[in-house]
């Protein structure tokens, strides 16, 4: 049984079909990447998987449960969460408050202190920014905060939507390093990226989405070698 199984997902915004037919599988412990041009339906798929958008067709199964149509808050409590595109940190709240809200599902389990220490170790910059308003952080710091905030819910599967978007190359390196470390912590990752090179370097497998449909899938090596991917995304003839 796979950790995540998406089967024939279709999502519409009114009359516009953003996702037509997306099927994918993520096994526990993997990093799987979803590649594709702007508007291919990658972000929409993630939002439908986490329950923020209704799936018009298809099923989403997480950890053996059919979670299609469940609310995002319920799915997050099952152990899957999304770090949304554009970071979406709570700008007028402090770094600490952002993280405490992230741990909302863990308060009753009483392990927020331990989680907090873990985050401060993974993201030392956040420790020094603790009392600062999140909106005053730099882009890279905000992305780290967004990921840390997601991790506070102790997800087994983390959906990452364009974590490198709009960041300086050196910060992009840092974010990808971090994704590698998350895998070592036992967190499975589904990564949507436009940064194809780095995504394929870190991923085990990948899917290529175009026009709302999966057009290609395979191991990261196979995709790197694929003529189609090279032509479309890697800028090599």
């Amino acid at each position: 049984m796979s950790l995540l199984e998406v089967d024939g997902l279709a999502v519409s915004y009114g009359p516009i079909k953003a996702v037509r037919d997306v099927s994918l599988v993520v096994e526990a412990g993997e990093i799987v990447t979803v590649l594709g041009a702007n508007g291919a339906g990658k972000s929409t798929s993630l939002q439908a998987i986490i329950g923020l958008l209704p799936a018009q067709q298809g099923r989403v199964r997480f950890d053996g449960h059919d979670v299609t149509g469940e609310s995002p808050e319920r799915i997050v409590r099952r152990g899957m969460t999304l770090t949304p595109e554009g970071r979406r940190i709570f700008a007028p709240l402090t770094v600490e408050e952002n993280l405490r809200i992230g741990a909302a599902t863990q308060v009753r389990r009483g392990n927020t202190a331990e989680l907090w220490d873990q985050m401060m170790e993974l993201f030392p910059i956040l420790a020094s920014r603790r009392r600062q308003l999140a909106g005053t952080l730099s882009g890279g710091e905000q992305q780290q905060l967004a990921i840390a905030r997601s991790l506070m819910s102790r997800p087994r599967l983390l959906l990452l939507d364009e974590p490198s978007l709009g960041l300086a190359p050196i910060v992009v390196e840092l974010i990808f390093d971090l994704i590698g470390r998350l895998r070592d912590l036992g967190i499975t990752i589904l990564l949507v990226e436009q940064n194809v090179h780095q995504a394929l370097d870190i991923a085990d497998r990948g899917y290529v989405v175009s026009g709302g449909t999966v057009v290609l899938e395979g191991t990261a090596e196979a995709l790197k070698a694929s003529a189609d991917v090279q032509k479309a995304y890697l800028g090599q003839a």
Binding site: L52, P72, E73, V76, R88, E97, I101, G102, A104
Partner: peptide, 24 residues
């Protein structure tokens, strides 16, 4: 309080607040 912070967060960005597992 956590509920109070959640209200402030929801005032900024409701969908993302739900992604924290907070019930709308």
């Amino acid at each position: 309080t956590l509920l109070g912070m959640a209200i402030r967060a929801a005032a900024v960005d409701f969908p993302t607040t739900r992604l924290m597992g907070i019930r709308a």
